[in-house]
Each structure stands twice: as structure tokens, then as C-alpha cells.
Design a protein around this nucleic acid. Structure first.
Lengths: 137, 137
DNA sequence: CTTGACCCTCCAGTGACTGGAGGCCCTATC
DNA sequence: GATAGGGCCTCCAGTCACTGGAGGGTCAAG
């Protein structure tokens, strides 16, 4: 009927530690067996799976909390959900842009570095001087 | 001749807190004035600028430590530097791929959501069921 | 002599877990 | 009845790279 933490861990793919943590911060409220063990129902598992997917999409814990609340709320407006998702999407785009900028600089420096047994290194030169370019420039 | 922390902060662009932290973890070793203030030389500032640029490229603190050590080491081989940079580049590529995958899923879901005052929401449907698709395919 | 800007140390918090110590519960086996 | 094992519990500490704040000393100007 109900499951122990190991069962929901296997079925949700979330580590038991993470599930305990989610309870601690109030994302789930599993019942307790007389022996003190957490006792999960299917609805708890469903909630955990929801959380696992939302986290896998990169939503923060607080966004997950908000999404869960909207999910439970029959009077929600889909605009509220969309707003959270769009905000997150914008954050992702920012991060991608930042990483791509790093990547470009770094790839250029790497391509300039001989990578042999001599000490000359355009990577260190750039970090040292901040010129931002090497021979291939 | 020497600078206080506020000066190097302005000239390096790093917050004073960060500079103190870098000292605490042994990345820099500024001298001290009789009054207890940190007393930075140009060489300290140079080191901090190096750190700032390396961090801006996303290197971890430990990688920065290794890069600084190589920078100081006349007997280095550029291959050592290149290896660190290539490792970091690979990590960046991984992160970009992961973010782009998230982005694709999320953008699709967002495009499927009406974002109006009705409760129906393909984003929540997906998080709830994990189907990974909505009407638009 | 006071104001204000600057500097100091130490402690706590961030996000989202993760690892580990120390100990209880339950089933199976000898 | 003792023991071995696996699973569960709580609580504390650590991760990464800072960041914020309390509480207090230092210094130049007016």
C-alpha cells in the first residue's frame, strides 16, 4: 500500500537523501509509520516525480515550490505558470550566452598554445596581461 | 608605493571581500602595515588581476591556483597549462549541451502554453506526467 | 572632538544537496 | 537467543566561491 523511502527513491530516481531534504524544506509531507519510517503514498511519489522533472529542467527549488502550488490550484491561470517558465528560460539563455563567450575566448587561447615541453604559453600571457588576443588574433 | 585593499579592489575590479577571501585560501599573501591594514604591491595587484581574468573564464579556484603556480614556474611546460584549459573547455561544452537540452524542452513547453486566464497548462501536464510532448509535437 | 570613510576579524548564510557518524528496526539464519 | 545484513532514522559538517553583517579599530578633514 505505502512505500518506504528506498522504494520511492528507486521509483522516482531521486536519492533518499534528496527526498529527506525535500521533506525538510516542506516540498513533501509523507506520513510516518509507527516505527518512525516515512510512509509514502502514490500521491507522494507523484509529487516527487514532478519535482524530479522540474529540477531536471533547471527550475530552482523555489520555482518548483511555486509550480507545485499552481499544479494543486484548480483556480490557477496558465499565465502564471508560463511566466515562471519564461523567466527560467531567460535565465538559461543568459547562462548559455555567458558560457559561449567563455568558450570562445578559451578555445581561441587553447588553439594558440603549443602544448609542448616549452614554457611559452599564450594562455598564461593572456591571463597575465588581459590582452585578449594571441598570434592568430 | 603600496595600496590598501580599497585601491586594489578598484584597480582589479574584485570586491574587497573577495580579495580577503583569496588571502584566506592562500592565493595571495599581501604584507601588512603597522596598523594591521593589508599593504598591496603592484605584484599583488597583478596576481589579483590574473585571478580575476581566470575566474571570469570560469576556471575553478583550484585551477586558478594551479595556473598561478605554472605562471610563476619558469620550468613549466605549456602542455600543463593547455591540459588545464582543455579540461575546463570540455566542462564548459558539457554545461552548454546540458543547458541547450533544457532550453529546447522548456522553449517547446512554453510555446505550447496559452498563458491566459484558464488553468489548462501543458507545462504542468508535462511535469506531472513526464510525457515530454504537447500538441505541437 | 566629531564625522565619515576606510579597514579589521569573526560568524553566518547562500543553493541544493551529499557524506558520514551513531544508532534503531526488521528479517533471516545458525 | 545471538548475530548478520540491510534499511531506516537523526543530526552535523562539508561542498563552492563567495557575500552580508555585527562589532570595533584607524585615519584625515573640518
Amino acid at each position: 500500500m505505502t512505500m518506504n523511502i528506498g522504494d520511492v527513491s528507486r521509483r522516482s530516481g531521486l536519492p533518499a537523501k534528496t527526498i529527506r531534504y525535500y521533506e525538510e524544506i516542506g516540498l513533501i509531507r509523507p506520513a510516518r509509520s509507527p516505527n518512525g519510517y516515512r510512509s509514502f503514498r502514490e500521491s507522494d511519489l507523484h509529487r516527487l516525480a514532478f519535482l524530479g522533472r522540474a529540477r531536471a529542467l533547471g527550475f530552482t527549488i523555489e520555482e518548483c515550490r511555486a509550480l507545485l502550488a499552481l499544479y494543486q490550484d484548480d483556480g490557477r491561470e496558465s499565465a502564471q505558470v508560463k511566466q515562471i517558465a519564461e523567466g527560467h528560460l531567460a535565465r538559461i539563455d543568459e547562462k548559455i550566452a555567458q558560457l559561449q563567450s567563455m568558450r570562445a575566448t578559451l578555445a581561441h587561447l587553447v588553439s594558440c598554445c603549443a602544448g609542448d615541453d616549452r614554457p611559452d604559453c599564450p594562455i598564461l600571457d593572456d591571463l597575465s596581461a588581459g590582452t585578449g588576443n594571441c598570434h592568430g588574433g
